[in-house]
Design a protein around this nucleic acid. Structure first.
Lengths: 238, 238
DNA sequence: ACTTTTCGTTAACATAGGTTAACTTACCAA
DNA sequence: TTGGTAAGTTAACCTATGTTAACGAAAAGT
């Protein structure tokens, strides 16, 4: 799988299914192969100019933004199939992109992609859909930090991850591998690690979900969905 | 101004300046005229299917999403020039769009715009940039609710509004008209109205910013920018 | 002009979540 | 295998923000 070209990957993408004609061949970046990053390495730094667009082939990425006081907020944890870095403005990046687990990324020069999408209908379409979806995910994240308490916020996030991983068969039976530390979870949820720990313990005690040794397991989807007010509509791909 | 066509409006748009050739003429929606909405009226409801895309000509819009428990989060307050509703998926809307002040909106069928952007380079470009900017705004909003306290959160938001309005000359000398109630401000910032009131009072007492009778006035930009950690880079249009 | 909402303001009190710190457990590198 | 660092856990205590409620001042409707 890890010498698969971008074209092959896109063909297997839930959004990109329509991209099967050989009209898609002329773009050289489609022959690209993913680049590998070690866990905890940094791909692109906040404040530096970077004209690449990334597509996750495998692993957990981390898109984060730091504040002056040293605090940080994790904007998203892009997973397989997610597109990152569509800023469309030449200027310093607004966030840092790093690898949480070992990560493999397709890297496409922004200009190449931009001109290709203008000429190639399905590709442009796919990109627009992907950005729009990122927008929905961000919106729901904002709902979480703005208006949900620690319990339902955490529950909501863990359900979202399950749903997003499921699209690629990376979660099954309510179980999935999750390399996040409680510190990272805290920076996603806008909480402290200590409180994340309390919350996770509580969720476990209520037999809703457990998160141990790098694995998440949904124990009672019904209770969890009710607590989180989770509705997966916002994650729809097509 | 209020029988201006969409084409005329786009030509005056900071992003859309390049759209001056008459190749832009063939699309009938460019001849559209904005539709007027009264303050507090609802344009599009969360959960209902709506295939329009909106561009704000004037006024303050409100994009919000409700939770089961009755709480709501305001995602954004789109202003002149902002593009709303690019979901790119046929399905129920994720948020409600309403008018805070009197509002005038260009309304474009999603399909018409999508096909036009594929054929017309500058238009597609403009749209991509607009979405990417919405993304930056959302990201910064998430920073606010996730990692800033009430004071800097409020300061940050009020500075953002000033910057966004300035792009159209709708703010000058640090002063701008702002029709938001404290309740609405609370739903933007993820606070309670009571606490917004305290915070606003505090900011006033510290001679940083005042918000009274529908007008915001920056009293000390320096102190305010420091408190908020405000860097307008994320709002850059070109 | 009068009445009725809505909005802003303030105070007293309550609590979810933050802070610090100590300890344990798991992981990693030599 | 072992020692060291990073991660998870728990407890005691603290504080920023939420809650409720009362009142005055604007707006809005008749």
């Amino acid at each position: 799988m890890h010498n698969q070209t971008l074209l092959q990957f896109i063909k297997s993408h839930p959004i990109g299914a329509s991209l099967t004609r050989d009209e898609s061949e002329p773009y050289s970046f489609l022959k690209l192969v993913a680049k590998e990053y070690k866990a905890h390495s940094i791909v692109s730094r906040q404040g530096e100019v970077d004209t690449r667009i990334f597509i996750v082939q495998s692993g957990w990425a981390c898109l984060q933004r730091g504040l002056q006081n040293g605090d940080r907020q994790i904007i998203d944890t892009p997973l397989r199939g997610d597109i990152i870095g569509v800023r469309a403005v030449d200027g310093p990046s607004i966030a840092t992109l790093s690898a949480i687990s070992d990560l493999s990324l397709f890297e496409i020069p922004r200009r190449a992609l931009a001109s290709a999408t203008l000429l190639h209908r399905p590709l442009g379409n796919m990109l627009t859909r992907a950005i729009a979806r990122q927008n929905s995910i961000l919106t729901e994240h904002l709902m979480n930090t703005g208006r949900r308490n620690a319990m339902s916020r955490t529950a909501h996030f863990l359900l979202e991850m399950e749903e997003r991983l499921s699209a690629y068969g990376l979660a099954s039976g309510g179980r999935y591998e999750c390399p996040l530390t409680q510190q990272e979870l805290a920076d996603i949820l806008g909480l402290t690690p200590v409180h994340v720990n309390r919350t996770l313990g509580e969720l476990r005690k209520l037999e809703m979900i457990s998160f141990k040794a790098g694995w998440v397991e949904v124990l009672s989807r019904k209770k969890l969905v009710a607590l989180a007010g989770f509705d997966k509509e916002y994650l729809r791909l097509m």
